[in-house]
Design a protein around this nucleic acid. Structure first.
Lengths: 157, 157
DNA sequence: GTCGTTTACTTTGATATCAAACTAACATGG
DNA sequence: CCATGTTAGTTTGATATCAAAGTAAACGAC
């Protein structure tokens, strides 16, 4: 009787991690939501992340990248990369800040606004479907909890 | 007085999306958690996603990729790519299933088990820190809510 | 048996993600 | 001034992510 399987971690450890790890739970839920929004936004050539970024640009003053990255909880270099396809399509323009030439502000263009008007409507429909598919108390509970997780410090106290 | 800003979306629309979009909230929280676990797992050369995958391999029967992808809510092609660096390091081996040669099972190696024994301990510490940093009712509420989101169908009903 | 269909996975091409190292510009102490 | 330190973004290299198209094997109807 050949030994084909190496020793494993204790089963209880594995089940404990699988059932309690918030990182895994968040990744799974985030992927599922991302795929749903990617699907409905595909007619506009936008991904869920591009949509969220474009929403954040709807401010009277074009926000500098240094404010957007923390808001989206993403690395500055990720934002640099994310801007490129949107700028290439003319949905936003990158403007150096005259007051501080290190800083770059992202300004949504009229084309970007026009696209987002339509995209916001399909967002509304898709989000209503998700809200309706969850038990009524879940969406708000998630907003509160996810907000507190996003507000956690990057490293341990 | 030059017009420098194009028309924007209605402010109330933007604020509504920003404050209620579960997709954005999940992405932000997932990124924050991912970065924290990436940090503590870095000494082992593992990312949070690699850790979750390796945890899932601790089964008496090596699971086929076709079961792992849905469990992790990821695309099969993403799993194919994720396996490569782990196989290259000898932490797992890919075994064609003799019963169905289309199917491939992922078997954790003794090296993989040894690494995961250590990694599981830092996971425990890091996760306890996160639990402690959140209001006491939040972690369980998130587990429930995130589980229900992950269980949503990929496309709308 | 064999042809069409379905299933399991891979490949390709594009974007997403971050760490580390880098550049440019501001800021400040001397 | 200017030398030093800090801040804002970018680049590079690696992995992560998915859609679309492709390959190979199993299945099912006939």
């Amino acid at each position: 009787m050949a030994e084909t399987t190496p020793d494993l971690l204790p089963l209880e450890t594995v089940l404990h991690i699988r059932d309690t790890c918030l990182c895994l739970a968040a990744q799974r839920a985030a992927r599922r939501l991302a795929r749903r929004f990617d699907t409905v936004l595909r007619p506009f050539g936008l991904t869920n992340g591009q949509f969220s970024l474009m929403v954040a640009l709807n401010q009277p003053e074009p926000p500098p990248m240094g404010r957007l990255a923390p808001f989206l909880a993403m690395d500055p270099s990720t934002l640099t990369a994310a801007v490129k396809p949107l700028a290439r399509r003319g949905l936003l323009v990158v403007e150096p800040d005259p007051q501080d030439r290190r800083s770059r502000r992202l300004r949504i263009t009229p084309d970007g606004v026009a696209l987002m008007r339509q995209a916001a409507e399909v967002w509304r429909v898709a989000h209503a479907e998700i809200d309706a598919a969850l038990p009524p108390e879940v969406p708000d509970a998630l907003r509160i909890g996810l907000g507190q997780v996003a507000a956690l410090p990057v490293s341990a106290a």
